[in-house]
Amino acid sequence: MISQNLALYNWNNGVIMIAIFALVCIVLVGILINFMMGGKKADNTEEEEV
């Protein structure tokens, strides 16, 4: 009966680590999208030598 009430694992630390990891992933994806949208357009109007 006592073993049913015994907490074998504390989930708080794992939940906090998963939340931090998800936050870091979201920030990195946001930075990547920002770089992709704000980059300079490639200018392909170079004169060709004949």
Results as ranks from 00 to 15, higher is better:
residue 30 G to P: 07
residue 40 K to S: 08
residue 8 L to V: 00
residue 32 L to N: 13
residue 26 I to V: 09
residue 33 I to T: 02
residue 12 N to Q: 10
residue 30 G to S: 08
residue 38 G to E: 02
residue 34 N to W: 11
residue 47 E to F: 03
residue 26 I to K: 08
residue 34 N to F: 06
residue 45 T to M: 04
residue 9 Y to N: 10
residue 14 G to Y: 03
residue 46 E to A: 13
residue 1 M to W: 11
residue 48 E to V: 12
residue 23 L to H: 00
residue 38 G to H: 01
residue 42 A to M: 09
residue 33 I to H: 00
residue 23 L to D: 01
residue 49 E to Y: 06
residue 14 G to F: 03
residue 16 I to T: 09
residue 23 L to M: 12
residue 39 G to D: 04
residue 45 T to A: 05
residue 21 F to K: 07
residue 23 L to F: 12
residue 5 N to F: 06
residue 1 M to R: 03
residue 20 I to S: 02
residue 12 N to G: 05
residue 30 G to L: 08
residue 36 M to I: 08
residue 19 A to G: 13
residue 43 D to C: 02
residue 6 L to H: 07
residue 32 L to R: 15
residue 23 L to Q: 00
residue 46 E to C: 02
residue 41 K to W: 00
residue 40 K to H: 07
residue 32 L to W: 13
residue 50 V to S: 12
residue 29 V to G: 12
residue 47 E to K: 13
residue 31 I to D: 00
residue 38 G to W: 00
residue 37 M to C: 06
residue 1 M to L: 09
residue 48 E to Q: 08
residue 16 I to M: 07
residue 42 A to L: 09
residue 41 K to Q: 02
residue 42 A to I: 14
residue 30 G to R: 07
residue 12 N to C: 03
residue 24 V to P: 02
residue 10 N to F: 07
residue 15 V to N: 12
residue 17 M to A: 15
residue 14 G to S: 05
residue 20 I to A: 10
residue 32 L to H: 04
residue 43 D to K: 14
residue 43 D to H: 11
residue 20 I to E: 08
residue 47 E to G: 07
residue 28 L to W: 13
residue 32 L to S: 14
residue 20 I to M: 08
residue 49 E to Q: 14
residue 42 A to D: 10
residue 50 V to P: 15
residue 11 W to F: 15
residue 37 M to G: 06
residue 18 I to K: 14
residue 4 Q to W: 11
residue 30 G to T: 13
residue 42 A to E: 07
residue 16 I to R: 09
residue 48 E to G: 11
residue 28 L to E: 15
residue 6 L to T: 05
residue 41 K to T: 07
residue 11 W to M: 15
residue 49 E to W: 05
residue 5 N to V: 10
residue 24 V to L: 14
residue 30 G to A: 03
residue 24 V to D: 03
residue 44 N to V: 03
residue 11 W to S: 15
residue 1 M to I: 08
residue 4 Q to L: 10
residue 8 L to T: 03
residue 29 V to H: 03
residue 19 A to L: 15
residue 23 L to I: 10
residue 3 S to D: 12
residue 25 C to S: 14
residue 43 D to I: 01
residue 23 L to R: 10
residue 4 Q to K: 06
residue 11 W to D: 15
residue 48 E to D: 06
residue 13 N to Q: 15
residue 50 V to Y: 13
residue 6 L to K: 07
residue 19 A to M: 13
residue 22 A to L: 11
residue 46 E to Y: 11
residue 16 I to S: 08
residue 35 F to I: 04
residue 31 I to Q: 03
residue 44 N to P: 02
residue 10 N to L: 08
residue 16 I to H: 02
residue 45 T to V: 01
residue 10 N to M: 06
residue 20 I to Y: 02
